[in-house]
């Protein structure tokens, strides 16, 4: 039996009057890739942002219910959000490297969390870049601007930046939506490798991508979780009519 890393219980999210997520219950297994699919506006990105409390940044956001990571509710008052986000890394839709050098991008999180020693910084940056399959491409230009990298390289840099602080969970918010097919293939290869060490939750509206890379899949529609299970089962024998319609392209 797989261990459950994240357990979501009765999660509701509102933006002002707008009820975005409605009573979500889901258990996300450890060291596997879980894909969250659904039509645009179904709340899948908002759901992802509940897992590292990024929705805290929106003034009108209100959350009820629980998100347990290793059994502890991350919405408890006692939780240190900074430490939480260190454990739960995030990569966004568009590559968003800081306008700094490649090195400083990866070192940013380390410095925030108090790593000052130069040798240690170098080691951890190299390690993160290697883990993100980017080291060979950037090792000679570590101190050049990150903005000079290609889009795919920038996205892998953002992954390296997230990996550097040694998270346990990585949230990917449609990470390939701004990438070309070759860069996307490299990214998927990387995700395949990362799941050996990390729990990965990826939001995607690309059904084929979800089928290729995920072990588990969740289907969201209009803020409700319609179906969740092993990817193979969801794709071959969906239990809900709506899941089937979505997967066969009747809407999206």
């Amino acid at each position: 039996m797989v261990r459950e890393k994240i357990v979501v219980k009765d999660l509701n999210l509102w933006f002002g009057e707008n009820h975005v997520l409605k009573g979500i219950n889901i258990s996300i297994p450890e060291k596997a890739v879980t894909a969250v699919m659904g039509p645009s506006g179904c709340g899948k990105s908002s759901f992802l942002r509940c897992l590292n409390r990024m929705n805290d940044l929106i003034d009108t956001a209100r959350v009820t219910g629980k998100v347990l990571i290793d059994g502890r509710n991350i919405y408890d008052d006692a939780v240190d959000v900074s430490l939480l986000r260190r454990r739960v890394g995030m990569v966004f839709q568009r590559p968003n490297p800081f306008p700094k050098s490649v090195f400083d991008n990866v070192a940013y999180g380390l410095r925030i969390h108090g790593v000052r020693n130069k040798g240690e910084l170098r080691e951890r940056v190299e390690e993160a870049l290697k883990d993100a399959n980017l080291w060979d491409e950037v090792k000679d230009r570590l101190f050049g601007s990150a903005l000079e990298l290609s889009g795919g390289q920038q996205q892998r840099l953002c992954i390296a930046r997230a990996l550097a602080v040694r998270p346990e969970i990585i949230l990917l918010d449609e990470p390939a939506s701004a990438l070309d097919p070759i860069s996307t293939a490299k990214l998927e290869e990387l995700i395949e490798k990362l799941k050996e060490d990390y729990t990965i939750v990826i939001v995607t509206h690309n059904i084929q991508q979800a089928a290729r890379i995920s072990d588990y899949a969740a289907f969201l529609m209009l803020g409700e979780l319609i179906e969740f299970g092993r990817t193979q089962e969801i794709f071959t024998a969906p239990k809900d009519k709506r899941t089937e319609s979505y997967l066969t392209g009747r809407f999206g």
Binding site: N52, M54, L57, V81, S82, L83, L84, R85, R86, G89, M90, F92, R94, N96, P97, F98, P99, Y108, G109, I112, H113, C158, R161, A162, V165
Partner: peptide, 20 residues
């Protein structure tokens, strides 16, 4: 997006403003 990247790494508001 740059601010979000910083917050997502665990940075607080002040660090995000001064460093990013």
């Amino acid at each position: 997006e740059l601010r979000e990247a910083s917050y997502a790494l665990g940075a607080m508001k002040w660090e995000t403003i001064t460093k990013v």
